[in-house]
Amino acid sequence: MSVAAIFVLVITISLLTGLFFLHGVNTFLIKTIQEKIDITAYFTSDVLEQNILQVKDELIKDAPAIKSIEYVSKEDALKVFNEKHADNSVLSKALTEVGDNPFLPALNIRTSGDPAQYQEIANILNQPQFNDLIEKIDFSQKKDTIEKVFSITSIVNRFGLALAILLILVVILVVFNTIKLVIDASKDEIATQRLVGASSWFVRAPFVIEGALFGAISFVICFLIAGLTAYFLAPTLAIIMPGFNLFIYFLQNMLLIILIQLGGGVALGVVSSFIVIRKYLKA
């Protein structure tokens, strides 16, 4: 019976740990996508550099959400293009045929990734005083993609949370019932203890301590499972998500994981024992 209680607790805590790992993967994915999102304002080809830098200063002043803002001159843009396509003769030939530098000076802007912040920047750039300077803003082209990414992550987060709450509730009920079976086996003993005058705490203490022990043993098992899973799964995950190492994530968040596992396990064991035994203390 004790083995059953520990087994159910191990499943519960592993589930909690699994959700924590998923949260790590999710956060990493969102961050990666957000880092890839930017907004570029292309200026007309004859605009002066000082005017562009003025716009840059104004943006920094009016939009504090900006994480980085980079001025790319016509020349820089051409240089980057040439470097990028050095071994592509067709593109180089096409560029020579155009004759003049076809690239436009631009401001490359990044924020923390929230679409609302991009919208705010787009609004500033769309002000009438900049109309003559700015050729185009490529935000509207990316807008749909940005919003789609955010709506998907938001749905995933909400759905994940709802599923997690549901699963945890189900598992808590299972833990509760398993502990109930453990204590049910001792109901005659509890009745005798009450009959000879044992106080509620005197009867309750061994069962609550047993519940805490179940939780602590489950923690040790789950911690090992989580550590080994993170260690062996890390290389595979790194292939799918370059830059994300599950084992390093595990090590970096070890204290939090210990807190979730030990706290969750002991709290579940203790609270279940506490509630179940109340029934028998009424006699």
Binding site: R194, L195, V196, G197, A198, S199, S200, L281, K282
Partner: peptide, 8 residues
């Protein structure tokens, strides 16, 4: 129940 246990 505390008093009852004392009596018991």
């Amino acid at each position: 129940s505390v008093e009852l246990q004392k009596i018991r």
